[in-house]
Design a protein around this nucleic acid. Structure first.
Length: 630
DNA sequence: GTAGACATAAACAATT
DNA sequence: CAATTGTTTATGTCTA
């Protein structure tokens, strides 16, 4: 009987390995390179804006430090691109800093008023851009949701379940229009009104003693080179980054548009840029009022950010909801499509590989991980797409496999989808999950069958593989026991063996390393302990917002050049590939497994009812289940 | 094109 | 004796 399953398995694997791998391989490659621009767009730009602000602040600080300490030379001015170095640092630094930092700067007068004004203006520009960028981001996301819903409705219509006009849209726009500049203006007026009165008396105070008031002398020609005025500087720096929304022509200024001063609550009209600059430096120079306005604006920005966060969550929830719902009427394999749609066009083609697998129309729509792909441009892993073991290749990027397994537990437990992890990783996970960090071979088997629907079949094949792996890898240590022998994991070995593998590996870890400032060696140990404790080390990068991910990706790209090959290890913990925590619960819990999947006795093994958590007694039970299987 | 990691298959020995 | 466990070898795929 065992034989039967064995041969069956062989056939099965043969098929699975046959066609799909190549096809998917291509897909994977494609998906890797085809970073959907839509992912990075608006929201990321917002981040960039913030980073730029921070960068400017840093540059200024740097310059000031240099000036105050050694007065190096006017070089600093020409060398504006030099501070580039910190860019990466700045990028990695949570943007949260920006406002607070600003505040501190304001309060402690660390900077010269002139520099301060730079910051203020930068901030202003940022906020204005943010508003539009955020709206843009929202609209895109909402558009996706809308499309999704429309598709859903359409499909329902086709099935005659619904008769609604496809055009019918949700009142989504109300969301997006919730934060319009007008409102901000209003807010501004309210807040600043009080200050306006003081304005007259306060305008020309000591601060102006600085050369702020000399905007005119600056010839337009210099604008592109090294601006000596605020606006110029900013526009220059922004341009250098090449990531601005605004087109900064020589005479452009974030606070100047359509002949109008965009300073909150100002709206003064100017015929030419020069007069605007004059106005800017005169009317909006660094004084109490401007400072206050800036503070307020910061609050506004924070509010906006908050709002953005909330709306993102809402969107997430909506998507989640739709996703789950769509899988509910599971009889149809449609869910998958839907998911892929939600997931993004990018993954769409991958979400359907089921072709390759006699996949169980079972529920689970796909490991969450793929969903995360959507957002994490970084992830070099489309591996999670259902597919043959080969896919697991990218597994090397995921050393702390544990979290991934745990997080997608539901999915793998119910879907007869090959887990994208190596046998070694799985074995390790099994062992580490055990209370005593040791398992007998049979217990390992049981863990496999319990945790993965996929391993409820093809027993002969994968069991052999498990044994083979146990013997082959040094990281698995066999320990004689009273009852016989148990297997344990030599974590160090486990960590050790991977480094050699990849040389030019994904730089994900690099992020972590650099971020944490750990050397490879240290980090190895660190990771090891993290992994051992099932702590998703990489979540730092993955957990965050999608934008964070793309941000990380950007960082990585940036650093790749410098650090390539430098790191022997760590390539294992990929932030990118980690599933999106927020979406974890999506995996649909299917009551019973697909009947088809549970051919006879197998159903007993399903363990689906068992809590996925380790239970000491289960071994015997499972054993029986196995016997049934034979 | 090559090396390394991995999956799979299978032969074989030792143990239960 | 059969099944299980463990080791080893061979082969093929995939990726860097």
């Amino acid at each position: 009987m065992m034989q039967e399953s064995g041969t069956e398995a062989t056939n099965g694997t043969a098929n699975q390995n046959g066609t799909p791998p190549s096809v998917e391989g291509h897909r994977e490659v494609r998906s890797k390179s085809a970073t959907p621009s839509s992912d990075i767009t608006a929201s990321d730009l917002v981040n960039f804006q913030q980073q730029q602000a921070l960068q400017v602040a840093r540059q200024i600080l740097l310059q000031q430090q240099q000036q105050s300490s050694a007065h190096k030379s006017p070089k600093n001015n020409d060398k504006q691109p030099a501070p580039q170095v910190p860019v990466s640092v700045a990028m990695m630094t949570p943007q949260v800093i920006t406002p607070q930092q600003m505040q501190q700067i304001l309060q402690h007068q660390v900077l010269s008023p002139q520099q301060l004004q730079l910051l203020l203006q930068q901030q202003q520009a940022l906020m204005l851009q943010q508003v539009s960028a955020q709206q843009l981001a929202f609209q895109q996301q909402l558009l996706q949701v809308q499309q999704l819903q429309q598709q859903h409705l359409l499909s329902l219509q086709r099935q005659g379940l619904l008769s609604i006009q496809p055009n019918q849209t949700l009142p989504l726009h109300s969301l997006t229009q919730g934060m319009i500049p007008a409102e901000l203006q209003q807010l501004w007026k309210e807040v600043t009104n009080s200050h306006v009165k003081e304005e007259n008396s306060a305008t020309n105070n000591g601060h102006r003693g600085l050369d702020l008031s000399s905007p005119s002398p600056v010839p337009p020609k210099n604008h592109n080179q090294h601006g000596s005025t605020n606006g110029q500087y900013i526009s220059h720096s922004l341009k250098r980054e090449g990531s601005t929304l605004d087109d900064h022509s020589p005479h452009s200024h974030p606070l100047y548009g359509h002949g109008v001063c965009k300073w909150p609550g100002c709206e003064a009209v100017f015929e030419d840029f020069q007069s605007f600059l004059k106005h800017l430096n005169n009317e909006h120079a660094l004084d109490d009022r401007s400072t206050a306005q800036c503070r307020v604006q910061m609050q506004v920005v924070q509010q906006l950010e908050l709002q953005l966060t909330k709306d993102k969550e809402r969107l997430q929830a909506m998507m989640t909801h739709l996703h789950v719902k769509s899988t509910e009427p599971k009889p149809a394999p449609q869910p998958l499509n839907l998911v892929s749609n939600v997931t993004l066009s990018k993954t769409a083609p991958e979400a359907s590989p089921p072709l390759s697998l006699p996949q169980t129309p079972t529920t689970p729509t796909a490991p969450l991980t793929p969903l995360s792909q959507t957002h994490s441009v970084i992830t070099p892993t489309s591996l999670h797409s259902v597919g043959p073991m080969r896919r697991r290749y990218s597994d090397k990027y995921i050393m702390p496999i544990s979290p991934d397994i745990v997080q997608n537990k539901e999915f793998y437990m119910n879907a007869e989808v090959r887990p994208p992890f190596t046998y070694a990783s799985l074995i390790r996970q099994a062992i580490l999950e055990s209370p005593e960090k040791q398992l007998t071979l049979n217990e390992i088997y049981n863990w496999f069958t319990r945790m993965f629907a996929y391993f409820r079949r093809n027993a002969a094949t994968w069991k052999n593989a498990v044994r083979h792996n146990l013997s082959l890898h040094k990281c698995f240590v066999r320990v004689e026991n009273v009852k016989g022998a148990v297997w344990t994991v030599d974590e160090l070995e486990f960590q050790k063996r991977r480094p050699q593998k990849i040389s030019g590996s994904p730089a994900l870890v690099k992020n972590i390393h650099t971020t944490l400032g750990y050397g490879p060696a240290l980090s190895a140990a660190f990771q090891a302990s993290m992994a051992e404790n099932n702590i998703p080390l990489y979540t730092t990068a993955s957990i965050g917002s999608p934008t964070l991910n793309s941000l990380a990706s950007a960082i990585r790209d940036e650093m790749n050049g410098a650090m390539d090959h430098g790191n022997s290890n760590g390539s294992d913990c990929s932030p990118g590939r980690s599933p999106l925590p927020a979406m974890h619960h999506i995996s649909v819990k299917e009551e019973p497994l697909d009947p088809e999947e549970l051919e006879g006795p197998l159903s007993l093994v399903t363990t689906a009812n068992h809590s996925p958590d380790f239970d000491h007694n289960r071994d015997y039970e499972d054993d029986h289940g196995h016997e049934d299987m034979l």
